[in-house]
């Protein structure tokens, strides 16, 4: 098998308030043609940044990404992105949403309708074409989003935690559907998740990322064969072994990530990420009361004095 996607020494640095934050460092790995590769990592390790780079939505600071040997210079219809929050246009019906990508591709109107219907059928939504997103359940919305990405026939499907917002049962059935679709369409899929079970269940290989700055820690082969032919694969002892192996790899990273967050909290180096600050502030007793005098005006000042 040949490399469909190739990351070569890719790094991404964000600068914020004069500080440099390294999100990704020296990412080098390949995704084979027609492969289903799952990517797991602790939260905040730069998984989504990596996907943005591959989608061409932002440019890497160092290194380059090749698709079919050609460097990625921007978004393109050879790669389809499926987002966790569906990103459906709420004023369009399911059918018209699937047609959206085809409009971008410049497909003729008649053919657009036919193809949209075909792909809605493929994701099991026959007869739901005239529904608006707000009339569909979360699982159905994600099916529409998948149909939309498949319809313009990209070689590569980039999926950013697509099932994370769904309930367990819907998630299980969509995982099976995705595998079925993948087997039928021969797409190359890069699937980002924070679920270990999901990664082992879906991926032919699972890439484990380190905590920030994100690197590829290890890529593990999961030679479990066709998932759709085995019944209840998740309770197979081999499945459990892989699951445990990845769990061990990730645990160290999660511990490190938490230590990072803690240190950052203490020294104020995590000031770039406001939400995290507030999250931590809620789970701890207020620190303001410790110091006499006027209340500090910002978290930064406070951390500085500390």
């Amino acid at each position: 098998m040949t490399a469909k996607i190739s990351f070569q020494g890719v790094g991404k640095t964000f600068s914020s308030r004069g500080r440099q934050l390294s999100a990704l460092e020296d990412i080098t790995f390949e995704v084979r043609r027609g492969e289903f590769l799952a990517l797991v990592g602790p939260s905040g390790c730069g998984k989504s940044t990596l996907l943005d780079l591959l989608a061409g939505l932002s440019a890497p600071t160092t290194g380059e990404i090749l698709v079919d040997g050609a460097p990625v210079t921007g978004p393109g219809l050879d790669r389809g992105v499926v987002f966790q929050q569906y990103a459906l246009l709420p004023w369009r019906t399911a059918q018209a949403n699937v047609e959206f990508g085809l409009e971008a591709k410049g497909v003729a109107r008649r053919e657009r309708a036919d193809r949209a219907r075909h792909f809605l059928d493929l994701v099991g939504l026959s007869g739901f074409g005239d529904r608006y997103p707000h009339e569909l359940s979360g699982g159905m919305k994600q099916r529409v989003a998948i149909a939309r990405s498949l319809a313009f026939d990209p070689d590569v499907l980039l999926m950013d935690e697509p099932f994370a917002a769904l309930d367990a049962q819907t998630r299980d059935s969509l995982q099976d559907e995705l595998l079925r679709i993948w087997e039928r369409t021969n797409k190359t899929i890069l699937f980002i998740t924070h679920g270990i079970d999901e990664a082992v269940y879906l991926g032919q290989r699972v890439a484990v990322m380190t905590s920030r700055p994100g690197r590829i820690k290890k890529i593990i082969d999961i030679p479990l064969g066709s998932r759709t032919e085995t019944e209840d694969l998740r309770s197979d002892p081999t499945f459990a072994r892989y699951r445990h192996e990845i769990w061990t790899l990730l645990r160290d990273e999660v511990v490190k990530a938490q230590a990072q967050e803690h240190a950052a909290d203490h020294w104020g180096t995590a000031g770039e990420r406001r939400p995290r600050w507030h999250g931590l502030a809620r789970s701890r007793p207020p620190r303001r009361g410790r110091r006499p005098g006027p209340a500090p005006t910002s978290d930064h000042q406070e951390a500085g004095v500390d």
Partner: peptide, 12 residues
């Protein structure tokens, strides 16, 4: 912004 991002990913 997600809608904009999603549309951008289609190369619009």
């Amino acid at each position: 912004p997600l809608l904009v991002k999603s549309a951008r990913s289609l190369g619009l």
